[in-house]
Simulated assay, not measured.
Amino acid sequence: MKPAHKQRGMTLVEMVISIVLISIAMTAVLTAFSTSMGRSSDPLWKNKSLKLAQLYLDEILSKKYDVSTPLGGVPATPVGAVSCNVSGPKAGSRASYNNVDDYNGINEKPQFVTGAALGAYDGYNVKVSVVCAGDDVGLATNNAKRITVTVTPPGQSPMPFSVYRSNF
Rank of each mutant, 00 (worst) to 15 (best):
L21N: 03
L21F: 11
I22Q: 01
I22T: 08
S23K: 04
A25I: 15
M26G: 07
T27D: 11
T27K: 04
T27F: 15
A28W: 11
A28T: 13
V29L: 14
V29G: 05
L30Q: 08
L30R: 01
T31A: 15
F33R: 00
F33W: 07
F33Y: 07
S36F: 03
S36E: 04
M37D: 00
M37A: 02
G38H: 02
G38T: 01
G38F: 05
R39Q: 08
R39P: 00
R39T: 01
R39C: 00
D42K: 02
D42A: 03
K48E: 06
S49A: 11
S49E: 01
L50T: 13
L50V: 09
L52E: 00
L52K: 00
Q54E: 15
L55K: 06
L55E: 09
L55R: 04
Y56E: 06
Y56H: 08
Y56N: 01
L57R: 02
L57P: 07
L57D: 05
D58T: 08
D58S: 11
E59V: 05
E59A: 07
E59G: 05
E59T: 04
I60A: 04
I60F: 15
K63N: 10
K63R: 15
Y65F: 15
Y65E: 04
D66P: 10
D66W: 12
D66G: 05
V67P: 09
V67W: 14
S68P: 05
S68G: 09
L71W: 14
G72D: 13
G72T: 09
V74L: 14
V74M: 09
V74N: 11
P75E: 08
A76F: 11
T77L: 12
P78D: 09
G80H: 08
A81P: 07
V82T: 03
V82I: 13
S83N: 14
C84R: 02
S87N: 10
S87K: 08
G88E: 07
P89C: 03
P89S: 07
P89G: 02
K90R: 12
G92A: 09
S93N: 07
R94K: 13
R94F: 13
Y97I: 03
N98M: 11
